[in-house]
């Protein structure tokens, strides 16, 4: 037997003994901060409705998270801020006039079914906010596709009318003779003077947030670049509506920068992220342009579909060992 060591008054642990001191909650906080400009825009365009919807979604998510953890006899995880982020993202994906109880149901579904049922943060196969949105789109089809809060003014190009449709619904209808390349339209899309979900109006606000995330290295450029690039290229080849209109309208920027980049449900390597982003862009455009489809927008579904094949992408994009 070996002699016993004396004087053990120090902590013992295995190396490394240094840490970057970045935490899950600080990453989530980064994303929340990055969403602030978009949220402010939502409040500007839709007023109190935006505040109510976001408050309802976040509260529903937090309560569900806490109750689920309690029921599962696991430690409370609302401190990691992921539930707050899911709530805010869900709210940004809802139309401004949605009844609040529906938003609450969405929040409960996002956390209860899409996240905690799988074991909590890190185990969910689908982006909880998007899965909840898909659920709501099927359950509350009418309210989820009604845009009455603000009237989108199309003043140029011979169509002097107020419309309650989103730009994408307008595209799907096939607005013959409409001048899609006019500067006024692009300006509206960029600054947010259009109909849509809370978070998908102003591309500028979203891009400011995305830049913040890139600078903080919270996300990498791969998924947003591949996603938006594919949408652009597809639209260019398709030759219908100008590519920039496709990129700036609907949820492309929000989806590419904030939803598809969700760590848990996207591939882990750079190569995998590029494939994932391209896939998202491709499916989005297929849904948007398919003449037989009923949906004018495909961002949510494209990300959910790509979430499903993320394990497969991961399997085939493992990094190559240094020296091999």
């Amino acid at each position: 037997m070996l002699p016993k060591q004396t004087g053990e008054r120090y902590l013992l642990s295995s190396s490394p003994h240094a840490h970057a001191r970045r935490t899950v909650s600080s990453l989530m906080l980064d994303v929340l901060v990055a969403l602030l400009p978009a949220f402010c825009c939502a409040v500007y365009f839709f007023g109190r409705r935006a505040l109510f919807l976001a408050g309802t979604c976040i509260a529903a998510c937090l309560v569900t998270e806490a109750l689920c953890r309690l029921a599962m006899k696991r430690e409370n995880t609302i401190g990691d801020l992921s539930a707050v982020l899911t709530g805010l993202l869900l709210a940004l994906n809802l139309p401004p006039d949605l009844p609040l109880w529906m938003a609450a149901v969405g929040g409960v579904f996002a956390i209860g079914i899409c996240k905690q049922a799988f074991g909590g943060l890190g185990y969910n196969p689908f982006n909880p906010a998007l899965a909840a949105r898909a659920f709501m789109l099927i359950s509350f089809t009418g309210p989820m596709t009604t845009w009455t809060a603000s009237a989108w003014q199309i003043s140029a190009g011979g169509m002097d009318a107020a419309t309650t449709a989103t730009p994408l619904a307008f595209i799907k209808k096939g607005a013959e003779g409409f001048d899609w390349s006019q500067a006024a339209l692009l300006k509206d899309l960029f600054f947010g003077n259009v109909n849509g979900c809370l978070g998908e109006t102003s591309a500028l606000a979203l891009l400011i947030g995305a830049c913040y995330l890139l600078c903080r290295r919270t996300i990498t450029w791969h998924i947003p670049f591949a996603f938006i690039g594919t949408v652009f290229l597809f639209a260019m080849v398709e030759g219908g509506v100008p590519p920039l209109v496709h990129v700036l309208s609907g949820g492309v920027v929000l989806g590419a920068c904030f939803m598809a980049t969700d760590y848990v449900t996207s591939p882990i390597t750079a190569k995998g992220k590029l494939i994932f982003g391209c896939g998202c862009g491709l499916v989005t455009m297929l849904i948007r342009t398919a003449p037989t489809g009923a949906y004018p927008e495909g961002v949510s579904f494209s990300i959910l579909i790509m979430n499903a094949i993320t394990p497969l992408i991961n399997r085939y994009t493992q990094p190559k060992v240094f020296g091999k």
């Binding site: 390597t269 493992q318 990094p319 060992v321 240094f322």
Partner: peptide
Amino acid sequence: SPCINCGSCVRACPMQLNPAY
């Protein structure tokens, strides 16, 4: 806490392994 698949370790690994997996 559980791995959130963020890929920080994959980017940090000098041997280009997948420490998360």
